[in-house]
Design a protein around this nucleic acid. Structure first.
Lengths: 352, 352
DNA sequence: TTGAAAGCGCTACCAC
DNA sequence: GTGGTAGCGCTTTCAA
């Protein structure tokens, strides 16, 4: 025990004072070098840098943030829909705002009309880089949005894409799942769960939403490659609208009376669930949907849904905040921790 | 923008100085009240408490830790096996040690002979509450271990159970999955994936390991309830030993030539994989195993395994550290964030 | 039972 | 170019 204690105490990390002492300069100079501020002779920089390296110095961010009284102001831009998934995301933001507040982080949410790129553009363009330290955007990848993100980045504001990627915009990070893989996963489950031969329907959201397109693509690939007993029919666009979906269902079942599976790849599950609850359909009809929400959870529990592909909204929001903070501070982050998993839920592994 | 900025600045959290001013006492007294230290008159405590409540004060832990120069010393007790899962856990600990070091947390690992409760007991009893601020234990739930954990707790040392729960020991938290549900999940997948009638084998680890027992139990329940086409035969104890498992396999297939599924519920997958690679077996044989590791990942990719039930080792270790820290500081934690999910992996949703 | 003051690691302002 | 010093929010002697 004694030696353990000693060992633990020996392991003390060097501070700015240690650097100053070793390099034979003042604290102020050390600080200038650490923060790459101008006004230090190259020779001095060398000396200090040498001390830093020798001592293996790592900055204590907590102390630094305390000293500068740093506060992170982040802005989240979300579609103004009442769908459960978006609601879950905004609930998470609201909830975590409280905790983040203690950690010097202030979060503001702005809502935009769904599928209205111009709204997003207006908000992004109005961001003042002086009072916003980072922006998280959940929106479609249109050319105008892409350009607005670029302009934001040019102003020096870190940007992350939420849920649906904006790869062409040079956003700093994408926080969400790989949607092609998510679609593939749904395809694999569908192929495994459906034992009969027949047709499978894909219910999608919007052609504008990159995530929806990618899911469809992944799903089709796997079913075509691996499950010849299934035929994926032309997909139906539900615009994430429960009422619309509810109204479309009867016609769909008229057109395809031999449907053996439905992949609900977007939002609007409420309409699907309502239709199913009102119509006696084959018990063998396999339904795979997206996102764990109160409604889908209940459908899974009752056996209306057979599986859910999901992404943890709590994780997404925490990850977005951590990434914005890391980008803003120009410090590294833990890649594994920030990877959003493609969750599969069956009735058996639902969280309590 | 101006008003936004103003709003943001108005939202300044109160500090100890504010409390002192409002309560009309000194900083030292505020601190005494905040930390429930003795030597303050009841009236004064009231005054200070009133100010705290009025202002809605929340302590800045970072500043507090800085002032106290607090360092958390945590001990992880792990079985000394070379199985991939345990290796993944210790790799995670090693990796995160570096990051945690910066955050004033020092982690020590102690290894004990696997399935040797006495080893664990010795280590736990040797813990000095003066230089250890928390212990995470990955071990079997025997009476002796339970009692040792109790003694540790009596010494005031926070304890969390890792991976396999120790519910009877009054450990502060359990960090791991619900293993009954994990078994149920495996059962559901097995029932869905196997289309033929036949026998299913459960490969288990040790009778001492609570997690293994629970998985078996959950698996049996679901198969019995929902999948009459399957019969679960007496389970085989592989002691997490790849060689032993490898040697047992031929006899198993002699006894049950009509096996349609194997649920490998414990460690030692290497032996199973080796056997399968050397023997041409029915392509339809469904195999579900536990834990995503390099080996199981490859088996899944090749189609040797059909699904994996897993738990994120990175998350487990981070969670253990956060919980030990929260327990040690007697502060609340985010329950949702600490829930370890039962991950299901198919070939399609493997992380890159 | 209370308070003044120093200091944790770091930053920022003002002098020189 | 460089250094001294005050101060971020909190804790901890030491005195009174």
């Amino acid at each position: 025990m004694a030696d353990q204690k000693q060992k633990l105490e020996l392991v003390k990390k060097p501070t700015v004072n240690d650097i100053a002492r070793v390099a034979g300069v003042s604290l102020a100079t050390v600080d200038r070098v650490l923060n790459r501020r101008p006004g230090v002779r190259a020779v001095t920089v060398q000396k200090v840098q040498k001390a830093i390296d020798e001592l293996g110095y790592v900055r204590d961010t907590a102390a630094a943030n305390l000293a500068r009284n740093r506060v992170y102001n982040f802005l989240f831009v979300l579609p103004d829909t009442d769908n459960e998934f978006v609601k879950a995301i905004s609930n998470q933001i609201a909830e975590q705002s409280r905790d983040q507040f203690i950690e010097r982080t202030r979060i503001t949410i702005k809502r935009v009309a769904p599928f209205e790129p111009q709204d997003i553009v207006n908000i992004l363009d109005a961001v003042d880089s002086l009072d916003v330290d980072g922006v998280a955007v959940f929106g479609p990848e249109t050319p105008s949005v892409r350009d607005a993100v670029r302009r934001l980045k040019d102003k020096g504001v870190p940007v992350v894409a939420l849920v649906s990627d904006l790869p062409s915009s040079e956003r700093d990070h994408f926080v969400g799942i790989d949607n092609v893989s998510a679609g593939r996963t749904a395809g694999q489950l569908m192929g495994r769960f459906v034992h009969r031969e027949g047709k499978v329907l894909v219910l999608t959201g919007s052609r504008l939403a990159r995530d929806h397109l990618e899911r469809r693509q992944g799903f089709d690939l796997v079913v075509a490659e691996e499950f010849p007993h299934l035929e994926v029919v032309a997909s139906v666009e539900g615009r994430d609208d429960p009422d619309l979906i509810y109204k479309m269902m009867p016609e769909i079942f008229e057109t395809y009376p031999d449907l053996v599976g439905i992949y609900s790849s977007a939002a609007g599950n409420a309409g699907l669930i309502q239709f199913l609850s009102e119509n006696k359909l084959s018990k063998d009809l396999v339904i795979i949907a997206h996102e764990l929400t109160p409604l889908s959870r209940e459908a899974l529990r009752l056996g209306t849904f057979d599986a859910l592909i999901s992404q943890d909204t709590g994780h997404i929001v925490r990850s977005a905040v951590r990434l914005l903070r890391a980008t803003s501070d120009k410090v590294p982050f833990n890649k594994a921790q920030e990877r959003i998993r493609i969750d599969i839920y069956l009735r058996e592994n639902l969280p309590p």
